[in-house]
């Protein structure tokens, strides 16, 4: 079984997670830029983070045989902080980097006027840089937020097939399917969505334009939820080909629209990054 996790925050995970993911079949992933679990207070904090997403983290992943790509954006939570607004000015530099496969996470948190402005500006950047867009749907007032997100996407002029709306559930999936955008689901231990509910959604809405991710981060989450969903699909009677479509070919098709996915086999012995090896003890 080959797995592509289209949304996981590896910066907050350990090398044990990388090893467990590889052992379970994960060979590629996308790490979206988001907040840090606590608010940032300056633009420099973002640019150091972005440098890590295009530099250190892909190197760390490669040590475990996993291809790492990322998305870059000013996230909706921090779009409200005037100290962070300057990030928008440096985004064009990062959106041209080789490992960047979408603009994201963008969208709404509390649906403020600042979020409106930053969301629209970043959809325009996605068009300018010929990148797809990853849209986070809000945790609070989700249905209204999703509806409004679809409207903003439509107004922006970006093609719906170049946009994924993420963190969907039973209430929001239908309107996104009808919009022509891709549908993303984050499988969590207790909250957003679980494996069994995901299987039921796939039964009802089909496997087309569907993305399943672990969204694992620094909170209670599990980087193997993609694999657990694949297993639940098989147990429920989906074929191995259905599983391959949802957990590999779909994310490849979506992020492949960037023209920047590199899915060649990783040479895990390829040296060091800025002199740091994460395989401590392996050096003689």
């Amino acid at each position: 079984m080959r797995i592509f996790d289209p949304h996981i925050h590896m910066s907050s995970r350990t090398t044990n997670d990388y090893q467990a993911m590889y052992d379970a079949g994960v060979r590629a992933l996308v790490e979206p830029a988001f907040w840090l679990g606590q608010p940032r207070t300056s633009v420099g904090s973002f640019t150091d983070y972005f440098d890590s997403l295009v530099g250190w983290e892909p190197f760390r992943a490669s040590q475990f045989g996993i291809r790492h790509h990322c998305t870059i954006a000013l996230n909706p939570k921090e779009a409200n902080d005037p100290r962070c607004a300057g990030v928008l000015d440096v985004l064009p530099r990062y959106l041209e980097k080789d490992g960047v496969v979408a603009v994201g996470e963008i969208g709404y948190d509390s649906m403020t006027a600042e979020e409106d402005k930053v969301f629209a500006a970043q959809l325009a950047l996605a068009i300018d840089h010929a990148l797809p867009a990853l849209v986070h749907t809000p945790h609070r007032d989700k249905a209204a937020g999703t509806e409004r997100s679809i409207a903003v996407v439509r107004e922006s002029g970006i093609e719906p097939e170049r946009v994924v709306l993420d963190h969907l559930n039973e209430v929001t999936v239908r309107m996104v399917k009808e919009s022509g955008c891709w549908m993303g689901f984050s499988i969590y231990p207790d909250t957003k969505m679980d494996e069994e509910r995901m299987v039921a959604i796939l039964r009802e809405y089909g496997t087309e334009r569907m993305l399943v991710n672990s969204a694992a981060d620094w909170g209670k989450s599990d980087p193997l939820k993609t694999v657990r969903t694949a297993e639940a699909m098989l147990a429920a009677g989906f074929s191995a080909d259905d599983v391959d479509l949802v957990l590999w070919r779909n994310p490849v098709e979506f992020y492949g629209q960037s023209g920047r996915l590199d899915l060649s086999e990783v040479d895990a012995t390829a040296g060091e990054f800025e002199g740091n090896s994460v395989l401590r003890g392996a050096r003689k």
Binding site: P92, R93, L95, E96, K97, D98, H129, G259, R260
Partner: peptide, 10 residues
């Protein structure tokens, strides 16, 4: 240069 420099390899 800011946006042309990164994509040269591609």
């Amino acid at each position: 240069l800011r946006t042309l420099f990164p994509g040269v390899g591609r």
